[in-house]
């Protein structure tokens, strides 16, 4: 499907989006500038999730552990070992790769509902382990990474990652890289095998493809991308806490991808951005309309999930692709 369309159209669209985000860095007011930086990092998390859920059709309820593997891989090495930004980021990626390889190896023996429960349980183990090793992780309270450590110097350039502009462009760089990687994967033979597995695993196996190896590769790639998001989050925003490993952070990427459109390359960004602003703005609105109702993001997330799955299972870009823009990757 996606392979039939011209590469120029695909890459052109994505390049245009990246250019737009770069221009926005200079146009956005301060508050929204910060929101966009955060959303781009979280969208990377959602893109990693989408690779496994959207394309390979594997619904995991434990991706918070891959995000946190990156978060803690970078955060712990920076706080306790005093590592610089680049080695710490690499440590986060390695942590995510090893964890997703191990989890994929075990969890992919199961399918369907069992896969969801197994991933959820492994994530729960990871979450509890963060408390068990509380002397290093400080559990819920978390760790703050010193400002002085969050700078990047190479070849005579000194970048302060705590300054909003540098942070925005660092987030954009990671986002663009992952976006292009995702697009390349989706257009590749590997990407099409994943879609084939999603549509009919038995038939794909009969055609001579090793379904397990392909799914394992997808799990590791997805885990590494999510870990990259986590490591970037730790470095750019300077906070590492156990909340990011809780079940809620496994469900959020699912929600973002469902909203934006599963199995679309741009859906994760659209979903993350919309959900962020929905929770952000509706909080104040609902407080004004219904004072004293103690409304939190819980209810909004819940209602959004139910409405999406009932009436809008393809998400925004999924619907756009189905109705209007057939070539959308």
């Amino acid at each position: 499907m996606s392979g039939e369309s011209s590469p120029a159209k695909h890459y052109g669209l994505h390049a245009a989006l990246i250019a737009l985000l770069a221009v926005l860095a200079f146009l956005l007011p301060e508050y929204h500038h910060g929101v966009f930086a955060r959303v781009m990092v979280l969208a990377v998390f959602a893109m990693g999730y989408n690779l496994l859920f959207g394309y390979a059709g594997l619904l995991s309820l434990g991706h918070a552990m891959f995000f946190s593997a990156g978060l803690y891989g970078a955060g712990l090495t920076m706080v306790h070992l005093g590592w610089g930004v680049l080695p710490a980021f690499a440590a986060g990626l390695v942590a995510g790769a090893l964890l997703s390889l191990a989890i994929g190896f075990l969890a992919l023996r199961t399918t369907g509902v069992a896969f969801m429960i197994v991933t959820m349980m492994f994530a729960q183990v990871f979450y509890l382990a963060l408390f068990y090793f509380g002397s290093w992780t400080r559990g819920d309270e978390g760790l703050v990474i010193a400002q002085g450590q969050r700078r990047l110097s190479f070849a005579g350039v000194d970048l302060d990652l705590t300054s909003p502009v540098t942070r925005y462009f660092a987030a954009l760089a990671l986002f663009s890289l992952v976006l292009v990687v995702t697009l390349a994967v989706v257009r590749s033979r590997f990407g099409r095998v994943l879609v084939a597995i999603r549509e009919n695993e038995e038939r794909t196996r009969m055609l001579g493809f090793d379904a397990f190896a392909n799914k394992l590769a997808a799990t590791v790639l997805s885990g590494v991308i999510c870990a990259a998001a986590g490591a970037a989050y730790a470095i750019l925003f300077g906070y590492v806490g156990a909340t990011f490993a809780s079940i809620q952070y496994s469900i959020l990427p699912l929600l973002w991808v469902l909203l934006g459109g599963a199995a679309t390359t741009l859906g994760p960004l659209v979903g993350t951005l919309l959900m962020f602003y929905l929770i952000d703005s509706s909080g104040d609105l609902l407080k004004a309309w219904l004072p004293g109702w103690n409304l939190s993001s819980l209810g909004i997330v819940g209602v959004a999930l139910v409405l999406l799955i009932l009436f809008f299972p393809k998400g925004i870009l999924g619907t756009v692709r189905e109705r209007w823009v057939r070539w959308l990757p």
């Binding site: 309820l61 509902v113 469900i251 819980l298 209810g299 819940g302 209602v303 139910v306 999406l308 799955i309």
Partner: peptide, 13 residues
């Protein structure tokens, strides 16, 4: 599963 996760949050809220 997705829908009951949504219900979970709605009931909590």
């Amino acid at each position: 599963i997705v829908a009951t996760i949504g219900l979970l949050y709605i009931f909590q809220q």
